[in-house]
Design a protein around this nucleic acid. Structure first.
Lengths: 229, 229
DNA sequence: CCAAAAGTGTTTGTGATACACCCATGC
DNA sequence: GCATGGGTGTATCACAAACACTTTTGG
């Protein structure tokens, strides 16, 4: 028999964000050290509770905006975690979201409630509750998405070099890629604009900067193009 | 500021199942005609509410078991839907699951509360709330999964012919496949057992029956094999 | 002139696709 | 003996992977 509304149990629904960043070398996640119970002092994902008047996407945006001041962050719902004892405090479910932010351009806002810090995904501390599992799932999802949708650019500055893009994909996929093959493949996609500008910080010769051309990409998608790296 | 447990809102969490079946020709979904409000008389997915003492997976299994009597059904969490007005009755979120069942082997249990009926996915009626969206998402997920994990067998009888398997993939992917290429590909995977038995119902010559060899598959996965159709 | 990173093509191998005829059987 | 679906192999093409040298320029 289907439960009716009146007899059904209500639950607390939390939302936790796996926030990815990239620092030119490694994929990072943003963690906070909890200044509140339970598990005070331990590292965890950034989270909050869903309000009655907002969608999960709204809640994720609210939490990310509060942390960064940004409101155009790429995010995607990952999974809803529901182990009965996952939170020792109270029966709480949590829907995990992952977000991609360009950690260079944007400073994190200060908040008295916690200390936020970037960790290399390979060197992240042990997290509370089921947050480790959330992070693992997020990494797998990011890997699948990054090769089939042009979301990698969200982790880079507006203008970037080919090498930066390659390093990003190497960090996400945790593999080494061949420079020539990578560049050939990216150029074949034909969705970047090569600028006249060069980045002179990395070498005497300087390397050309590129930009993702969203209009061109959308146009090609309309025509049946499939992004694939 | 992060909400604290005490001030956070509690919500009703429903669970809706997209139940896929296959009848040798088309991919089907199981729908019920609601005998209760709201939206009485309209078609909807099979669902229920999460109980305080169970996980979402538990709830999905409970709902499917109640419907079919089976408890070894393949299922996977899909997405949590959270539009504020998605259910006009009360603020309710719903986590959608999809399930794969072999509709031939198993009879559905009767239940006075509703009438369950199989619909071709291309001819399904309009559904209540956001259930159409759930179904669309489930189809896309199933397509991605079916080519990268050996879950298609869940929709077939224990023993099946190559043609049945091909028709299944054609229905899932909504494409036509070449018989020789399909069989070559499947044989190359080397995860089926060819039985000495033949299915004589479809032709005079009869066609060999095959079975999925889970042990062999698991073994190959251990060794780094990747399933890909 | 030299050190350091940027930039650039070709060859080879592998997997995907296209395609047509013979086989076995019951009637 | 014939109608019906079952079963099988090869040639071509497209994409993925391997691979090394030249260019630029600031010091």
């Amino acid at each position: 028999m289907l439960s009716s509304y009146s007899t059904a149990d209500k639950v607390l629904l939390a939302l936790d964000c796996i926030i990815f960043g990239f620092d030119q070398h490694q994929l990072k996640i943003l963690l906070i050290q909890r200044d509140f119970e339970p598990e005070k002092g331990k590292w965890s994902l950034i989270g909050g509770f869903l309000k009655r008047t907002e969608t999960l996407d709204d809640a994720a945006k609210r939490i990310l905006n509060h942390l960064s001041g940004l409101d155009d962050i790429y995010l995607e719902q990952l999974y809803t975690f529901s182990e009965v004892d996952r939170d020792p405090g109270e029966r709480t479910l949590s829907t995990a979201y992952y977000a991609l932010i360009n950690s260079e351009d944007h400073k994190l806002l200060e908040d008295g409630d916690y200390t936020a810090k970037w960790f290399d995904i390979k060197e992240a501390p042990n997290l509370i509750f089921d947050h480790n599992e959330m992070v693992q799932k997020a990494i797998l999802r990011l890997r699948r998405r990054a090769v089939s949708k042009p979301i990698g650019f969200e982790l880079l500055p507006e203008k970037f070099t080919m090498l930066q893009l390659q390093k990003l994909y190497e960090a996400i996929l945790d593999v080494e890629l061949d420079k020539r093959n990578f560049i050939n493949k990216v150029n074949a996609l034909d969705i970047l604009v090569k600028l006249d500008e060069k980045d002179m910080t990395s070498s005497r010769k300087g390397s050309y900067l590129y930009q993702f051309d969203k209009e061109k990409y959308d146009q090609k998608i309309e025509e049946g193009f499939t992004f694939k790296i």
